[in-house]
């Protein structure tokens, strides 16, 4: 026999417990709906995959290691500094490897250190030889002009390549291969890249440490715009900018099937109106590492930027492509504080 009156049943059609369950389920459904709507541009499944991978990386991935080595000028022992940085960082094995060295030769502007200094490229070539690389090439696909020879002449690379007897590959005109883009960060399903990059065992990004008016900084990942062929995507490879620069950079960092690492020319950096103009800053450092995001984040800190405030770093780290959190980056060699500067910010164009 029930102790509840018919009136009380009318006033409380569901129990308190059932009501709470319903409220919880409604809350979850509403939350899922908001997430689904918010992630619609990229697709919920992709967003969920990136989010899970990012969290797994933040919680469980081992710390990245980035090495710093002092090198006060290009007349100093650049090879010695590079060797020290290389040995302190967890870099790829070069013995028997086909190595592609990719400097940043964006262009030549008289008196502006906007490109990787040839002394750093020379040291990298010499170190790769020391470490037993089977084949070494220097490769670049310039962004603003089709005739790379003029840039090689003006930047001192023609002399360097002749002196070191090293072949140069113009990545804008190489044979091409179509690489599937596994990240799904852009609308592109595939990307054409130079065969030379695809066939390499180790790709060494050898950028200049500098500011950039679109991305705030340009270091090892932005340097990979040069591996995208101009004959397919044009000059200045603007088709990729249309895909969203952070998304394209995440894809370049994530989808290349060649093992990559980075050595940054921070001996003299570029502040202000990069990537082509701006002013020289003597930072006196070489940065090395095989987690490109960690290298870029460390370079950002060396220039006085907070990595989480740089869109492409923030997005790529969230998606689990690498580490930018200082607690997840082990600095080897010299201390970060020794080389930290405050670079003049680039003019905002984004």
């Amino acid at each position: 026999m029930s102790h509840q009156s018919p009136i009380s049943n009318l006033q409380s059609p569901i129990s308190r417990r059932a009501f709470l369950r319903l409220a919880l389920l409604t809350g979850i459904a509403a939350g899922a709906g908001v997430i689904y709507k918010a992630t619609e541009p990229v697709g919920f499944d992709r967003w969920f995959r990136w989010m899970v991978r990012g969290n797994l990386a933040r919680w469980f991935a081992p710390n990245a290691r980035v090495a710093l080595a002092a090198c006060p000028s290009y007349d100093a022992d650049v090879l010695g500094a590079l060797r020290a940085a290389w040995q302190s960082a967890a870099m790829p094995e070069l013995r028997g490897a086909r190595v592609v060295i990719k400097p940043n030769l964006v262009d030549f502007v008289d008196g502006v250190p906007c490109f990787t200094h040839p002394r750093v490229a020379q040291a990298m070539i010499q170190l790769a030889r020391e470490l037993g690389a089977r084949a070494i090439v220097v490769a670049e696909g310039t962004t603003f002009r089709r005739d790379v020879q003029a840039v090689l002449d003006a930047t001192g690379y023609t002399d360097l390549l002749a002196r070191e007897r090293i072949a140069f590959v113009d990545l804008n005109y190489d044979d091409l291969v179509e690489v599937p883009l596994r990240g799904g960060y852009t609308r592109l399903k595939t990307l054409f890249v130079a065969q030379t990059i695809r066939d390499a065992d180790v790709l060494i990004s050898l950028p200049k440490m500098k500011t950039h008016h679109w991305t705030q900084i340009s270091v090892s990942i932005k340097n990979f715009f040069g591996i995208v062929p101009g004959i397919k995507y044009g000059w200045p490879k603007n088709t990729l900018h249309f895909q969203g620069i952070p998304a394209v950079l995440a894809e370049l960092a994530d989808s290349l099937q060649t093992r990559a690492c980075a050595v940054v020319d921070g001996i003299v950096g570029l502040e202000g109106d990069g990537p082509l103009f701006g002013n020289a800053v003597s930072s006196g450092v070489i940065v090395a590492g095989s987690d490109l995001l960690a290298v870029d984040a460390t370079s950002a800190r060396l220039m006085g930027f907070e990595p989480a405030q740089i869109d492409y770093l923030d997005f790529a780290a969230w998606a689990g492509i690498g580490a930018i959190d200082a607690r997840k980056i082990e600095i080897a060699g010299e201390s970060l504080a020794r080389f930290q500067r405050t670079y003049e910010r680039p003019p905002h164009m984004g």
């Binding site: 603003f144 002009r145 008016h213 000059w235 200045p236 109106d273």
Partner: peptide, 19 residues
């Protein structure tokens, strides 16, 4: 002419022979 950007902010971008 260069690729098609004669200026970047207040900086003149130089011409190239090929363009």
């Amino acid at each position: 002419w260069n690729i098609g950007n004669p200026w970047m902010l207040d900086k003149k971008i130089p011409a190239t022979i090929q363009d």
